[in-house]
């Protein structure tokens, strides 16, 4: 039996650090895309003509009902077959973005629906058009009101981003695996990766709390 020995970890930190960096990059980019696309989906579901609305709803329904891993495989391995070759990194980002965009869309849709209709009426009475009202009045408020719920989604996204290791992206988990295959020290390096995820989440939560506090001030 091997005892636990963390003294081996520092030697591999540069490699682990690289994985950490890619986890951060993929998560941040996917988070931003998932919020923008999520709001887009929500607006389409609420306001677009049936011709656009129903395909988008079908797409959302399909994405909600299937696992992220399968979606990644479809984007990375499946699309090649019909001539669409997306590099692994972008496949991962697109998969994560769309997967969480669908959940964000549901949150935004509820956030918009729960806004007082007096807000829209006030804007319209000033002469704002329907889309101007959405852009200046409805969407900013919906974004603010949904910070806690969307924040939880982003914490999930950060953790779920490890799944992109399955299509060969050298993010944190993948890097840990590489190191383990060299050192045969799974416990030490998985724990190191876990600790790093934990730190990332602490940072993310602090950022979210900061945003929530800022939003709270303007209420």
């Amino acid at each position: 039996m091997q005892g636990l020995d963390f003294s081996i970890v520092p030697e591999y930190l540069p490699l682990i650090g690289k994985g950490l960096w890619w986890t951060v990059v993929i998560s941040v980019v996917s988070a931003l895309f998932s919020i923008v696309a999520g709001m887009g989906f929500a607006l389409i579901v609420l306001y677009a003509s049936p011709l656009v609305r129903y395909p988008v709803r079908l797409f959302m329904w399909l994405f909600m009902g299937t696992p992220l891993l399968l979606q990644l495989f479809l984007i990375y391995f499946g699309l090649v077959q019909i001539g669409i070759d997306i590099p692994a990194l972008w496949s991962g980002i697109i998969g994560l973005s769309l997967h969480f965009a669908v959940y964000n869309a549901d949150i935004f849709r509820a956030g918009i629906a729960s806004l007082d209709k007096g807000q829209t009426e006030a804007a319209r009475s000033l002469g704002f058009g329907a889309w101007q009202t959405r852009f200046y009045i409805v969407v900013p408020q919906a974004l603010r009101n949904t910070v806690p719920a969307v924040g939880n989604m982003m914490i999930a996204l950060l953790k779920e981003s490890s799944i992109v290791s399955m299509i060969g992206i050298a993010e944190l988990v993948h890097s840990a695996q590489l190191v383990i295959s060299e050192t045969y020290r799974p416990f030490e390096f998985y724990l190191t990766a876990a600790a790093l995820y934990y730190v990332l989440n602490l940072i993310l939560e602090a950022v979210l709390r900061g945003i929530e506090r800022k939003v709270e001030l303007s209420r």
Binding site: A122, A123, G129, Q141
Partner: peptide, 26 residues
């Protein structure tokens, strides 16, 4: 009509029972 009504509404101020100020704006 949307264009017409927006320009007409700009000429009419409305004050509501529940104020309807925009809470996200100063």
């Amino acid at each position: 009509f949307e264009k017409h009504i927006n320009s007409v509404r700009q000429q009419m101020g409305m004050v509501f029972q529940h104020f309807n100020l925009f809470p996200h704006l100063s």
